[in-house]
Design a binder for these strands. Structure first.
Length: 452
RNA sequence: GGCCACGUGGCGGAAUGGUUACGCAGAGGAUUGCAAAUCCUUCCAUCCCAGUUCGAUUCUGGGCGUGGCCUCCA
């Protein structure tokens, strides 16, 4: 094992050498969607970033050595709310969104995680974790509610770098009357008759938000595991609470060793929010942009940095891939050199990696065969140029209502005009096709066309 | 108020104690009937002030500015 991966760890606030608990395998848990609304471009970022990490880990440790778990949270107050608002049953809503989410993942060319557990399939385990917490005196029941007692865990705040005093001072949380301490968070709460609920020692109810990740990471990865990922906004309170629950319930000194968090996506420099109405939904992008374009755009800045989503970024990524596809070829697998991989090993430096791709492309078009192979393999590693060239070129076909024989006839007409030096007519025909969404390029011996 | 991150050319975006990637845009050229695409060449930058240092964009301190978290969020 010569390849050394360094990762920035939120827990230590430093870049650290990555050392798995067991050198022969790696466990990674990434917070997946709460299925209450269609995924947006902000959700796409962790999907793609951790997909790249997943691919990289497989490259380093071997294909079958990585266990990647990404949950689906299908019970939550937001879901209940959305279901009421949209007059859809919970089941219908979560099924619809989950299906859409899976289409997004496929569209973004994300490899399937090893496991994709659902919260509602793990209520039993959650109840048993809460029971454990009560037994360990880290939680208390009050009027059918169960709360985690933050003061019982003295390392609370370590991940998010907060102490309880600050939290109380800055707190805008509505303090429930059932809580002993304003910082305590809910593990179990009663459900209205009309709302989803499960029988429990504390009456019919449902789990608190953070519980599913604690329970499901343990089930698939163990009480301690290597990497836990998610968006930067999950650091507090979600991940902080996960740590508290898991470590207290399991009586362990550690939970996840490396915490990796991605930065936010803004839209035209503004925060995406429902009230502004500037949320970019992935299923909308699916309509006329190839998923690889989104991928490249999302990887164009370092994962921890903020990323601004805008038309220009998409266009640039589109143009780059158009160019790169000139070198497309299906190649049989070959080991990728360490020097190519290096930027990714330094905390997933995708911008530097992409700049290397540009250099490899340059060598490749000059006829350097080994550079070409490297280029293509390197693209594939981050999920680019895996799709056939034909599919890439014809992505917009379904959108453009135009018959291919019509295009070919027009090109024939135009070339006849060109032979007769009737350039006026030739230009008119070119313009006509362009207006229909077809662009013409005259090559040396032929005229090719593509969708705009 | 507390905590954190960031400030690099026209734009995006890496890296670095000494010659500052890469992409886009711009300029020039090749090619073309003209284009487009492609290829070649090329111009342009480290927020301000002080300190450490032979040397700072990089390290330290201060300032100014931007963003995030502290409430549901990727």
């Amino acid at each position: 094992m010569t390849k050394n991966l360094n990762l920035f760890n939120t827990l230590s606030n430093k870049k650290e050498k990555f050392l798995p608990i067991d050198n022969s395998k790696v466990g990674m848990y990434v917070c997946g969607p709460t299925v209450y609304d269609f995924p947006h471009i902000g959700n796409a970022r962790p999907l793609v970033v951790f997909d790249v990490l997943f691919r990289l880990l497989k490259k380093i440790y071997g294909k079958n050595k990585i266990t990647y778990v990404r949950n689906i949270t299908d019970i939550d107050d937001k879901i209940i709310e959305s279901s009421k608002k949209n007059n859809k049953s919970i089941n219908e809503l979560t099924k619809t969104i989950t299906k859409d989410f899976h289409q997004d993942c496929q569209y973004l060319n994300c490899q399937k995680p090893s496991f994709e557990p659902k919260a509602t399939d793990h209520i039993k385990e959650m109840i048993s974790m809460v029971t454990n917490l009560i037994k360990n005196k880290n939680a208390y029941e009050n009027e059918k509610h169960v709360y985690f007692s933050v003061s019982s865990f003295n390392e609370y705040g370590k991940l998010s770098n907060k102490n309880s005093k600050q939290l109380v001072a800055g707190s805008r949380v509505e303090v429930s009357k059932y809580k002993k301490d304003p910082l305590d968070f809910v593990l179990w709460k009663p459900s209205e008759v009309s709302d989803p609920g499960w029988a429990s020692p504390w009456g019919r109810g449902r789990p608190g938000w953070h519980l599913e990740c604690s329970v499901m990471s343990e089930k698939f990865l163990g009480k301690k595991f290597d990497i836990h990922g998610g968006g930067l906004d999950l650091v507090f309170p979600h991940h902080e609470n996960e740590i508290a629950q898991s470590r207290c319930a399991n009586k362990t000194d550690k939970f996840a060793n490396y915490w990796v968090h991605n930065g936010f996506v803004t839209f035209d420099k503004e925060k995406m929010s429902k009230s502004i109405g500037n949320i970019v939904f992935i299923n909308k992008l699916r309509e006329n942009i190839n998923g690889q374009v989104i991928r490249l755009a999302l990887l164009s800045s370092h994962y921890k940095q903020p990323l601004d989503w805008n038309e220009r970024l998409i266009q640039e990524s589109q143009n780059t891939l158009d160019k790169w596809y000139n070198q497309f070829e299906k190649i049989d697998s070959e080991e990728l050199d360490d020097d190519v991989l290096n930027p990714l090993l330094e905390d997933l430096n995708t911008p530097e990696y992409i700049s290397k791709l540009h250099l490899l492309y340059d060598e490749s078009i000059k006829g350097n065969k080994s550079s070409k192979v490297k280029f293509l393999k390197a693209c594939n590693l981050i999920g680019l140029l895996e799709e056939d060239k034909h599919l890439w070129k014809n992505f917009k076909k379904s959108k453009v209502k135009i018959d291919e024989s019509f295009i070919n006839q027009k090109i024939k007409d135009r070339n006849n005009a060109r032979i007769k030096r009737d350039y006026k007519l030739a230009d008119i025909i070119r313009k006509e096709l362009e207006n229909k969404g077809v662009v013409i390029e005259d090559k040396q011996d032929q005229t090719i066309w593509k969708y705009k």
